[in-house]
């Protein structure tokens, strides 16, 4: 009973954190900070997948979304400018 309630509370908290991280990724002018916000959003999403009993999707999301996408974004930002033009 208590564990079920705790799982329900986590199900409510983690999507709110995902939306907050996505909003930060849109708002930030520093593109490196925006890429880190995308990585945090992806990590929280993999945690949500794990709670929803899909551990293989969680592994794939943590590997691809949180590491390789961030690496590719940082490489792309390095080749252009760091600050976003207003």
């Amino acid at each position: 009973m208590v564990a079920e309630m705790l799982v329900n509370i986590v199900h409510i908290i983690i999507p709110i954190l995902i939306v907050i991280a996505s909003a930060f990724a849109v708002v930030f002018k520093d593109l490196i900070a925006a890429a880190i916000a995308v990585a945090a959003m992806s990590l929280l999403l993999s945690l949500e997948f794990y709670i929803l009993h899909a551990p293989d999707v969680a592994i794939a999301e943590a590997g691809i979304g949180a590491c390789l996408t961030t690496a590719i974004l940082v490489i792309a930002i390095r080749a252009t400018r760091r600050e976003e033009e207003a």
Binding site: I32, V74, I75, A76, I77, R78, A79, T80, R81, R82, E83
Partner: peptide, 8 residues
């Protein structure tokens, strides 16, 4: 790709 501007 080469680094172009910025501090990275």
């Amino acid at each position: 790709t080469k680094a172009k501007g910025g501090k990275i």
